[in-house]
Simulated scan of single mutants.
Amino acid sequence: MTRPLTGAELAAERRQSWLLEEERRARARGDQGRMEFWLRLTRSRIAKEIKADRRDVYAGFTLICRLFMTAMDKRAAGDQRLWNDLMQYAQKVVDQNPPRN
Rank of each mutant, 00 (worst) to 15 (best):
R100T: 15
R29I: 00
W18Y: 14
K48Q: 13
M69L: 06
A47N: 03
D31Y: 05
D73G: 01
Y58E: 03
M87T: 05
D85M: 08
C65K: 06
P99M: 05
S17D: 03
P99C: 03
R55I: 02
A90Y: 04
S44T: 09
W18T: 14
M69A: 04
Q91N: 08
G30E: 01
A8I: 13
T42F: 05
T2W: 04
P99E: 09
T62E: 08
Q96K: 05
R25G: 04
Q96S: 12
A90P: 01
G60E: 14
G60V: 05
Q96C: 09
F68G: 08
A28R: 15
R27P: 00
R55D: 03
V94C: 08
E23W: 14
W83A: 14
P98R: 04
N84E: 02
Y58T: 03
G33R: 07
T2I: 12
E21M: 10
E22A: 14
V93I: 13
M1S: 15
M69P: 02
T42D: 09
M35S: 10
D85P: 00
G60T: 06
A52E: 12
Q32M: 04
S17C: 03
K92A: 11
D85E: 09
A52I: 07
L39Y: 02
T2K: 12
E49D: 10
Y89G: 08
L82F: 07
N97L: 11
A28M: 10
M1I: 11
R54V: 02
T70K: 01
D53I: 07
W18S: 14
D31F: 02
R100A: 13
A8N: 11
R34T: 09
F37P: 03
D73I: 05
N97R: 06
L86P: 00
Q16W: 13
L63Q: 06
R75A: 14
N84F: 00
E13S: 15
L63K: 10
N97S: 13
M69F: 01
T70M: 05
N101K: 11
L39I: 08
Q80D: 08
R27G: 07
P99K: 09
A11T: 10
L67F: 07
A12L: 09
Q16M: 12
Q88G: 04
A77I: 06
E22R: 15
T70S: 11
K51A: 15
L10Q: 15
L63V: 02
A26S: 13
R45Y: 14
V94I: 11
R100L: 14
A59V: 09
T6R: 12
A52V: 10
R34P: 01
D31C: 01
R29T: 00
L82A: 06
F61S: 09
R100P: 00
A12G: 04
G7H: 10
L82V: 12
G60M: 01
R40Y: 01
K74S: 06
G33K: 10
G7W: 07
P4S: 14
N97A: 08
A77E: 07
E23N: 15
S44C: 11
R14P: 05
A8W: 11
A28I: 02
T6P: 14
R27Y: 03
K48G: 12
K74T: 05
L19E: 10
L67D: 09
E49K: 08
Q16R: 15
E21W: 13
